[in-house]
Design a protein around this nucleic acid. Structure first.
Lengths: 245, 245
DNA sequence: CGGGGACTTGATCCAGGTCAAAGTGTGTGG
DNA sequence: CCACACACTTTGACCTGGATCAAGTCCCCG
């Protein structure tokens, strides 16, 4: 199958070394409110990647868990292959987001993490991070908070909203996240194809396309290929009906 | 609305004091692999409830987060009220399960936690628990593992399985959880009405009823009112098609 | 400039929602 | 102790949102 082999042929990436203290992502990533000493300690543990090619696999489903991954630039999707090769996209992760929390308990990664387009990231050996957190309340708190947020987001995604609501919420969510990272909240370029959006929203690709077309006809957005402009955010929020991500 | 007022009229419960060291739930709850000293410290922090009436509210959506709740006996459901009073059941929690992780980050509870039938529980002030974890690697690890598991479960619930798959997976999941707590895996009594099951599985009550009837006709189960017997677990698992909870 | 993926559009189908109504325990007050 | 009220469950009839199937169309990229 085309989707399956696409996943399997991803290449591996190598690693360099780290400068958490002057990372732009400060308030989003692990180093948030930590003491200076924490940042320095983090640097000794975190292994940054260079810029890697589109489709690079950070970790594979079923592989033994060892590290969390922090997105530094670009976009990373997490995706599982259900029985009979059907892709389910679990999330799109932007700079500052951390991937892999759901693998701590079982000891195995529960999804494939794959870069969309060129990207860079840091791998964070969990064992070492965990030991660091034992001596640093701020880091422990940050870890708990980040996991709590991931959980809240996952819980919000459980639900049966209409296709319109899901797509609207998706656009608004992206907008908010771009905004929080210093980009325009009303004009952005999607890192992922329609098929990934559809698999993420649990819709058919055709449905996503149709909904976007209709939103455009209704003057809510302008969408040409991957480029999106939000023209009427309030009405879009109204359509979303209060769905968070 | 009947559902809304039902939520609002829940009563509050009082508290007593604790004996974690000889709690039956050992391996399931917070005290899992902790040192003896951890258990003693936990006891100083955890506040056990007496047996409370059906429909008791442990925490309400939007309320300020202060404590996690550990179910000690009975069953607790977590539920949110979407716009226009539609109930969404987020989970059913059995003895040993911990509720409230998703509120750590935002500082507000994100759901109502309500007892189904008589139940008892412990409230665990998070501030204190967190401080305890700072001096006890085992407890910190346990906390991270429990949150990771909650996250993994929530992620698994995101998906668009058929009604048959969802109901089958629900029954199998319950079976496994009862089994892990020393009860029969093939004969149990549901703590919740069909409507709650439906809201949990994102189906209509009628659909749940129909599926159960059909399962019974096909000899997979026997279900009279709240009492359920699983007659053919392998075939049930096959129907579920590999859905975890 | 040709090939192939990504995207759009149209036609049809069906799982499950909704509406309606009839059973079925359970508890409550007379 | 019975009758009634009520909440839960089941069953039936019908309808619809989105999936599926099937062509196109449009960009890139070699």
């Amino acid at each position: 199958m085309t989707t399956q082999s696409a996943v399997l042929q991803y290449s591996r990436a190598g690693n360099g070394h780290s400068r958490c203290a002057q990372c732009q992502l400060g308030p989003l990533c692990l180093g948030a409110e930590g003491a200076r000493a924490t940042l320095v300690a983090l640097e000794s543990v975190v292994r940054p990647s260079g810029v890697v090619a589109p489709g690079t696999l950070l970790h594979a489903e079923g592989e033994r868990f060892s590290s969390l991954y922090a997105v530094r630039s670009g976009c990373v999707k997490t995706v599982t292959i259900g029985r009979e090769g059907r892709e389910r996209v679990l999330g799109f992760h932007l700079p500052g987001d951390i991937v892999g929390f759901d693998a701590i308990d079982g000891g195995l990664y529960r999804s494939n993490a794959v870069t969309l387009g060129s990207a860079s990231y840091c791998s964070v050996p969990f064992q070492a991070l965990s030991q660091l957190a034992e001596h640093d309340p701020a880091l422990q708190g940050r870890l708990l908070a980040l996991m709590s947020r991931s959980l809240a987001l996952a819980v919000d995604r459980v639900g049966d909203a209409s296709a319109d609501q899901r797509v609207a919420a998706f656009l608004i969510g992206l907008s908010a996240r771009f905004s929080g990272r210093g980009y325009s909240p009303v004009h952005f370029v999607l890192a992922m194809p329609r098929r990934d959006i559809a698999n993420f929203l649990r819709l058919a690709t055709e449905t996503v396309s149709r909904v976007l077309t209709r939103f455009q006809q209704d003057g809510l957005i302008r969408a040409v290929r991957r480029e999106v402009m939000l023209l009427d955010v309030p009405r879009l929020e109204q359509v979303a009906g209060g769905l968070p991500p």
